[in-house]
């Protein structure tokens, strides 16, 4: 069967994806595939960059040198993850500058979870366990995404995320064995971070219109609700080791489904936070804008220095 030009290309493209042949930067790809990937990868990169802020809050307040060193390493990893992802997105033809502009102008979205405040040390534990745990659940399947540079970045990220989750659980474990006040602090952090973490998987499948196409293109490998269920099942067991509880009265093992049932999600809260009305949206963005503006002279000076060196070398030669 012979198909006309672009339809034919699209057919060949889908065949490659179906056969798990990775798509590489210079290969032909449908425009919408390219656009969707740029949006998905850059949003993820922005989330890593903004995600440094809630934890940076505790670097100077960490309870020990060990915890401080760990937290610095984790925040450095997040910067690294943002950079791996920006670099993957750049192979699709968007510049770094354009992505940074989209973030700073508020045009681009990032994960809504980072718009919540980190008010106690236990939040560092809850973020590691729940937020990074949810991120890992989302990201592991993307190591097999159809776009080569994206999949390779995800492999690197997933290897490093494992330490993030484990150090978080350890923080909570230590608190859970501490004084009454420490145990209360531990439970309080779980109470505040649980539902926002459950929301990290995005809207329910029936309100997620692009899922089918993204799954056909293998830039999403499981639906939001499937991943969310997996996350709830895992955490409902893990929380027992802490002797704490998840803040959901309807959480209950369902023998028939072989999954935990859980209570309804407050999608209105999710919508509000996504649309800029979360507790810290303005603060987070303002911090990024200030960091970018404050760094402008460094970027300019480095370019001027490089240019001067180039000219000196030319004169010698």
């Amino acid at each position: 069967m012979s198909l006309p030009g672009s339809e034919n290309m699209e057919h060949t493209f889908q065949e490659k994806v179906d056969q798990d042949i990775r798509i590489e930067p210079k290969d032909w790809m449908p425009d919408v595939y390219r656009k969707t990937l740029i949006r998905q990868i850059s949003q993820h990169a922005h989330s890593e960059i903004v995600g440094m802020l809630p934890e940076a809050n505790w670097i100077t307040r960490a309870p020990s040198l060990k915890r401080k060193a760990t937290l610095i390493a984790k925040v450095q990893d997040e910067a690294g993850h943002g950079l791996y992802l920006y670099s993957a997105a750049e192979t699709l033809g968007i510049s770094r500058e354009e992505m940074v502009d989209q973030l700073l102008s508020g045009k681009a979205k990032y994960s809504s979870i980072f718009n919540y405040p980190t008010i106690t040390w236990a939040d560092m534990g809850a973020i590691g366990w729940l937020v990074d745990g949810a991120a890992i659940m989302n990201q592991v399947p993307l190591c097999r995404a159809s776009y080569g540079p994206y999949a390779r970045a995800m492999v690197r990220i997933c290897k490093e995320e494992s330490f993030h989750q484990r150090q978080g659980f350890e923080i909570l474990l230590v608190l859970s064995k501490g004084s009454d006040a420490q145990r209360r602090m531990c439970q309080d952090a779980i109470d505040r971070w649980w539902w926002p973490s459950v929301m990290m998987f995005g809207p329910n499948d029936e309100s997620s219109p692009h899922t089918a196409q993204s799954m056909r293109w293998k830039i999403k490998r499981f639906s939001n609700d499937d991943l969310r269920q997996r996350f709830v099942d895992v955490c409902a067991e893990q929380v027992k080791l802490l002797g704490m509880r998840l803040p959901d009265d309807q959480l209950k093992w369902n023998e028939e489904r072989q999954h935990y049932d859980f209570g309804p999600i407050d999608w209105e809260e999710f919508r509000q936070v996504i649309n800029g009305n979360g507790p810290c949206n303005k603060e987070r963005l303002a911090a990024r804008v200030q960091a970018h503006d404050d760094g402008a002279w460094v970027r300019e000076a480095a370019m001027a220095h490089a240019e001067k060196r180039r000219q000196q070398q030319q004169r010698v030669a």
Binding site: L83, P149, H305
Partner: peptide, 8 residues
Amino acid sequence: AGSIHAAD
């Protein structure tokens, strides 16, 4: 491994 931005 990937790419980065740098002045020199």
